[in-house]
């Protein structure tokens, strides 16, 4: 009987000791690198337009954190994003990089439905899945989702997509929010 108790005691003691250590360490540790990337990513407009020269918003955030990219390379975000990035990184705000053009006024893609041939090429180009439609059927743009990134213009074979100024004056980024992944959650253990 005492042997069984000792066994239970040893295992429970080891488990409590290690568990307590893990909890203690994870509470004491300072903010992690991953958290910083998530914060920068959340400040970006999530258009995934790649105008910054990176494949998407998150890679751009990682590059900024690594000091490889300047904070003024996001045209869809405009000045508000640059100010926010400067605050997060503790740098001075910069004007938008001149080679990327002036910050655009909010715009939205509109498909001229009488000319659309239903080729689905713009569906594949859209980074935010804002275009609905199917093969041989007319497509249309969900205006609330569209970020005005212009990526659907070039693939269209019949040039039926135009950009128009946005009627509602919501700034880009007010509609889309990147989820901030909780960095405390450890990755699930694979077998």
């Amino acid at each position: 009987m005492s042997l069984v108790l000792a066994a239970i005691g040893v295992l429970a003691g080891l488990a409590l000791l290690l568990g307590g250590l893990i909890v203690l360490v994870s509470r004491r540790l300072p903010g992690r690198e991953a958290t910083a990337v998530e914060r920068l990513n959340a400040a970006l407009p999530q258009t995934q337009c790649a105008q910054c020269g990176y494949p998407g918003c998150r890679p751009y955030a990682a590059a900024m954190l690594a000091g490889e990219a300047d904070i003024n390379r996001c045209p869809p975000g405009g000045e508000a994003t640059i100010v926010e990035l400067a605050r997060l990184l503790g740098r001075e705000p910069l004007p938008l990089a001149p080679e990327l053009g002036s910050p655009p006024s909010p715009q939205v893609a509109v498909i001229d439905e009488s000319r659309c041939i239903g080729c689905t090429l713009c569906l594949r180009a859209c980074p935010v899945d804002a275009i609905v439609g199917a093969q041989q059927y007319m497509h249309t743009v969900i205006a609330a989702e569209c970020t005005g990134c212009e990526l659907c213009i070039a693939p269209c074979p019949v040039d039926c997509i135009d950009l128009q100024p946005r009627a509602d004056s919501l700034p880009v980024g007010a509609r889309l929010q990147a989820p901030v992944i909780n960095p405390v959650t450890p990755p699930a253990n694979a077998p």
């Binding site: 290690l18 250590l21 893990i22 360490v25 992690r32 991953a34 450890p186």
Partner: peptide, 19 residues
Amino acid sequence: AFILVIAGLVQLTELIVRA
């Protein structure tokens, strides 16, 4: 006991390395 201790220590090290 080995499974318990090894798993716990690796988790601990992973936390420290990540930070």
